[in-house]
Design a protein around this nucleic acid. Structure first.
Lengths: 399, 399
DNA sequence: CTCCCTCAGTTTTACGTATAACGGCCTTGT
DNA sequence: ACAAGGCCGTTATACGTAAAACTGAGGGAG
């Protein structure tokens, strides 16, 4: 079934898989063409060259079109302006389409020394924030004929990845959402351009950041408006720049408006981690009557991301505390999970797709030698059901 | 880190093990060179022009060790038994380590025609089931010196991916969790080995399935034990083999035990989709008093996956129905989300990691020409809080 | 008429690796 | 003593592509 459908994917390489090999793919492996011209006007040759199942090469296309391989490369590479006649170019394209030619990526890479491929290093795939970042990066990459291969650092956010073994090809650059110092050093040693997401500047060629200091400011303002003054921090147990920024911004903002940071509990970035940390915070007091509002129990938990916040939600419920009546909870990221739980999470929405897009954009700029300015993307608090007015000590216990 | 591993394709002799390979993990990255290599004189190797910043090649190593490039390839490829003396081999390895040599993957691929790389096609990364599948595949692949590159089909489960443009290198095979027919045809046309996960047999070289018919049997048995007789199906709006299996198994099992499949609502595979579908099912009756148990409202919702089930949870809550007192909900997959919500989901746990591992294993078998038998992995119902006894019409409404 | 320039291609080369084909030694067997 | 092999390497080649260098033919300009 010669179902030939031209996929107009916009890029120049036609992706057709026509298998109608009725054409005379002239020359095969035998390079005997050294003598005179391959007579084009001769008898219709038998299909000789298609050896079983190997993919056609540029030479096959050249033979079919009656030109040399160099011409095929010129035409298909798009650089034939003024070097090849329009008719010849068209016949080359026709032959390529007919044979279902696709250039050998390995050979092209070997020749060019570049791959038009970026590696995206993310800490985990279980947080769909990074899936969205990837989507944004792929979108921009695709528009520039670039590819993105994803490397989920398997051991978690602090492990050293082996990017080169993962991407089974040479790389033009790396976009890293988080990297262990030693892996970063290895990368730098390799001389690869590196764009860091949500990381400190320095030791990389460009950064794309999300304005989490402002995000924390919005969180604190929101909670202060609701009357909260005693706040705890469910922090990520990760030594990473972003999380330091969050902690510092939270501390500074709370101090600036006269609220108290009661305590900070660190835990791994997962629902289970948030559950454990929030339990440690909430269970230390008010055991007798959970509905009481003891002085040493915070009325709001600010969590470093949505996974932790969902864990905090569970912890509160297990301890018999209602959210948001007894305790408010906030997250960061606004992943799908945030609206899947009940109550829905008040959280800081990060423009994940734009992060990925800006990261890829920055990498492209670096590769082209253009100067790149540090990107800082704005964030926005999304108030939902997990935050509410601060419970007043007297009003609650007596119905 | 240049973990050079002897690739033993175990062609026939197959005595691959015992390669006391050089575990040069974390070799001195500090030796970045700073011109380090004092090219040993006296060797036939001539100019070893270290051109500034380019990566060292096999020729550079050869020059440094005073041998030919062929010997370098022999030694580093592990095939030097009886062809190179132990002392020479060691000096080659030392030179490679010193220079930080890493073989050029593109050149190797071009030469060998194989890449030891598999493509894993998954429908979406927002469902962390597939992240776990990926982990399983990577684990097995790594043990065989294979790589796995991930291709998230961006347009959802039915879109046609372009795997070849995605994986920026040639591929040895494909493991596909779901593919549109035209993409599958393209793959077959390319002659690539293909392992399908949770798909129909036929048109591929091997399949790895999860016993979802049995899973549905367990779900129905569980609900029947709790007394449920009127059941609705929140189905995936996807024309895919697995989902057909689920639907048929549910229908057959319900009929076999005398229960009724009240209706089926199809929706996209997401929390929002589940919310919409379950709302359509639950809102059609009992508007006046939600706590009533009208005859046309199901007492249990069986959902095609956990995302849908979480959406159903939300729908019930929004309609004022309690889970599980008023309505029970079940999912499939047992992803992290299942225990993040409240109540926790009763669901069918699928061995995601084993699926990925078995898929990679099957692909390796196909590549080596060994026969592969279809794999079918067992599943297990995990009863949690989202299912409870069927509400009896009289007992509930009057406090 | 010659010189130079453009057109329309072709030859040739290089990318880095793996391996087939080959060749000097040194040990054996007969 | 001399061919027959092990050792221990080397030289040469092919993989498919991109692009630089080269080749003619035709056509004004001087």
């Amino acid at each position: 079934m010669p179902e030939q459908h031209a996929s107009a994917t916009g890029n120049r390489g036609g992706d057709d898989h026509g298998t109608g090999n009725s054409s005379d793919t002239g020359n095969g492996r035998g390079d005997g063409d050294g003598n005179g011209t391959a007579n084009s006007g001769g008898a219709p040759g038998r299909d000789t060259a298609n050896r079983g199942r190997t993919r056609p090469t540029g030479h096959d296309v050249a033979g079919a079109a009656g030109v040399s391989q160099a011409t095929v490369s010129l035409v298909l590479g798009g650089k034939w302006q003024g070097r090849v006649s329009a008719r010849t170019a068209e016949s080359v394209r026709a032959a390529a389409r007919e044979l279902g030619y696709r250039p050998n990526l390995a050979a092209r890479t070997l020749r060019l020394g570049r791959t038009r491929t970026a590696l995206l290093v993310v800490p985990a795939l279980t947080n769909d924030f990074f899936a969205t970042v990837h989507r944004g990066a792929v979108e921009v990459a695709g528009a520039h004929d670039f590819g993105v291969v994803l490397y989920p650092s398997p051991e978690g956010i602090t492990a050293a990845p082996d990017p080169f073994a993962s991407a089974r090809t040479a790389l033009d650059g790396v976009i890293a959402s988080s990297m262990a110092p030693e892996a970063l050093a290895a990368l730098r040693g390799e001389g690869l351009p590196l764009v860091m997401l949500d990381s400190d500047e320095g030791a990389c060629d460009a950064t794309v950041n999300v304005d989490l200091a402002d995000g924390m400011r919005q969180v604190v303002a929101h909670l202060r408006e609701l009357g909260h003054r005693r706040i705890a921090h469910v922090a990520a147990d990760v030594d990473s720049w972003t999380f330091e920024v969050r902690a510092r911004a939270l501390r500074d903002r709370l101090r600036a408006c006269g609220a108290t940071l009661l305590r900070t509990e660190r835990s791994p970035l997962s629902v289970a981690g948030g559950l454990a940390a929030a339990t440690r915070i909430l269970a230390t007091a008010g055991k007798a009557g959970a509905a009481d509002v003891p002085e040493d129990r915070p009325t709001a938990l600010v969590c470093d991301d949505d996974l932790l916040a969902v864990g905090a939600l569970k912890a509160a419920r297990r301890l018999g505390l209602r959210v948001p009546q007894d305790v408010s909870v906030t997250g960061i990221d606004d992943v799908a999970l945030a609206t899947a739980v009940e109550p829905e999470l008040t959280t800081v929405r990060l423009p994940a797709e734009r992060v990925g897009a800006a990261g890829m954009q920055a990498l492209l700029s670096v590769l082209e030698g253009r100067p790149v300015e540090a990107v800082r993307l704005p964030v926005r608090l999304v108030a939902r059901g997990s935050t509410g007015p601060c419970p007043s000590p007297g009003l609650h216990g007596s119905p």
